[in-house]
Design a protein around this nucleic acid. Structure first.
Length: 498
RNA sequence: GAGCCCGUAGCUCAGCCGGUAGAGCACAUGACUUUUAAUCAUGGGGUCGCGGGUUCGACUCCCGCCGGGCUCACCA
């Protein structure tokens, strides 16, 4: 037997084989390596807090049960660093406290194993809070080795593909995803406190509407029907507004867009959309500031946040500037004085914007804005004065027929919010859709589609309302100083390997 | 979709002008009973992403492919 083992071990190193061998040895000792029934009585952080004043070298009679993952073994297992979801606690395994059968189990433990420990609390002379182990329970024998303890897992691809490993190894990754949860929880609470009703609307759409984007297509077998993963919840939320379900409602959920992947784009992403009856886009500006600033204050304890090289001041109020005004200031071209699409296209192209052939006046202005202004909007600003022809769901601006009552909020050069006074005139809405369909016919793949039932709903009457969308992923990126959207999405979209 | 860059042990990384691969951690064996990136000694571990080509000889040079990152385009 011993000779056989020697032969195996002299061959190719195989971590898994070694651990399977230990697993078998544990079973031979009558130990269940995936034991049920061990319930920890305290977590590491709780013990840290409770025994904060325990002096170095002091012992207590307090028995505790802790559980976690073995992240370090020192002095042949005499000292174990046990990590749980809250922090680290040291375990002391000494022959004076552990029975011989427990010492035999100890020898079969590896880095990465999940164990439960029952013992007595003390603080070592060197100041480490420690459990003197009296009993060990193997909760999950790990068959695969962890990444290197000091450098952790740095390979970006592996971090995204095997997020569980990233989370085991990186407190930063754990903190980011916890903050994401906290941000969404606070957002939800603030909305509910303000009287908003949370709803869920379909992910599967017969007509993909509510935004200008390419949809994912799928198929329903029983109905033998092409369906689309939603690109936005907007048209269904407005149907609920028509129904009078609530004057204020919101949805926080996923959207799917069949477009490129980048550090700021994931094919599925999360957004907040909310609608408030008897309000307009100005109300939505206040709402945007309130939500984002309050979330920052509650989650980060400050409204002054670092992002990369910048420091961003989120304390309201935020300035409001029109798109045309910003382009005029940054690029020296006054689009409001250009009265036709041809002149606007020429001007935009001169500013370095790329444009489709038949681009409208509004598309030209937007392209000029994207080329010359967007990147410079680091501090929060509400950009107003959106062109009508790129805003088919927004109410006209009565002061200028080329514009609508819409704004996008920019922070760090990114669009983080998009809002408008919603069209509730069904005839106007139909005209807007028809203009979009015309653009579609002329090759604009992302022009919005006519949703007949939505127009029908408007014909029953929707109260005047303000609507707002906030991209959750980008908000979380901002508030967690994360350089990539993949850092704030636990399982970002990846091409399958092999 | 295009351009640039990257892929070497389980992990983190070296590897020069082409001569068939190294370290640390991890692992195994031993020492060590108050360590904390424990330490010390010894040892094992490689389809150099994959496939071609050039060459006496390729981790290294060339081509193609796969996967990833960044930038651009599209978009939020």
């Amino acid at each position: 037997m011993a000779e056989e083992r020697e032969e195996e071990e002299s061959g190719r190193t195989n971590y898994r084989a070694q651990r399977l061998d230990k697993l078998a040895q544990l079973k031979a000792l009558g130990v269940d390596p995936y034991a049920d029934g061990f319930v920890p009585g305290a977590r590491a952080a709780e013990l840290d807090a409770k025994y904060k004043t325990l002096a170095a070298g002091a012992e207590t009679p307090d028995r505790v049960k802790v559980a976690g993952r073995i992240r370090a073994l020192r002095n042949s297992g005499m000292f174990i660093d046990l990590h749980d979801a809250t922090g680290k606690i040291q375990v002391f395994c000494h022959k004076d406290h552990l029975a011989p059968d427990a010492l035999a189990v100890l020898k079969l433990l590896d880095l990465g194993d999940l164990i439960g420990v029952e013992g007595v609390i003390r603080r070592t002379p060197r100041g480490e809070l420690t459990v003197n182990a009296h009993a060990l329970t193997v909760l999950a024998k790990a068959l695969l080795p962890l990444p290197e303890k000091f450098h952790g897992l740095t390979d970006i691809e592996t971090r995204y593909r095997q997020r569980y490993l990233d989370l085991i190894m990186s407190e930063e990754s754990r903190a980011t995803l916890r903050q994401r949860s906290h941000i969404v929880a606070v957002m939800r609470r603030l909305l509910i406190e303000r009287g908003f009703l949370e709803v869920e609307t379909p992910m599967l759409h017969a007509v993909p509407g509510g935004a200008s984007a390419k949809p994912f297509v799928t198929h329903h077998n029983a109905l033998d029907l092409e369906l689309y993963l939603r690109i936005a919840p907007e048209l269904h939320l407005k149907r609920l507004m028509v129904g009078g379900l609530s004057d204020k409602l919101f949805e926080i959920n996923r959207n799917f867009r069949n477009e490129g992947i980048s550090p700021r784009h994931n094919p599925e992403f999360t957004s907040l959309e909310l609608y408030q009856a008897f309000a307009d886009y100005a109300t939505m500006m206040e709402m945007t500031e309130y939500l984002i600033a309050t979330i920052a204050r509650e989650v980060l304890g400050t409204m002054r946040i670092p992002y990369g090289k910048h420091t961003i001041e989120l304390a309201p109020p935020w300035p409001r500037k029109s798109m045309a005004e910003l382009v005029k200031v940054k690029a020296g071209v006054d689009f409001l004085s250009l009265h036709d699409a041809v002149a606007a296209r020429d001007a935009a192209r001169k500013l370095g914007a790329e444009l489709p052939k038949g681009a409208s006046w509004g598309q030209a202005l937007e392209a000029a804005f994207a080329a010359k202004v967007e990147d410079t909007l680091i501090q929060p600003v509400h950009v107003t004065g959106f062109p009508r022809d790129i805003s088919p769901l927004a109410k006209p601006d009565l002061r200028d027929p080329r514009l609508v009552e819409r704004f996008e909020t920019f922070v760090n050069g990114w669009e983080v919010a998009n809002a408008f006074s919603e069209i509730n005139d069904p005839l106007d809405q139909r005209e807007r859709f028809e203009a979009q369909m015309m653009a579609r016919d002329h090759g604009d793949e992302e022009a919005q589609r006519l949703d007949e039932d939505f127009v029908t709903a408007l014909e029953y009457g929707m109260p005047p309302a303000g609507g707002l969308g906030i991209g959750i992923d980008r908000l979380v990126m901002l508030l967690t100083d994360s350089p990539s959207i993949r850092d704030v999405i636990a399982f970002p979209t990846m091409r399958p390997k092999g």
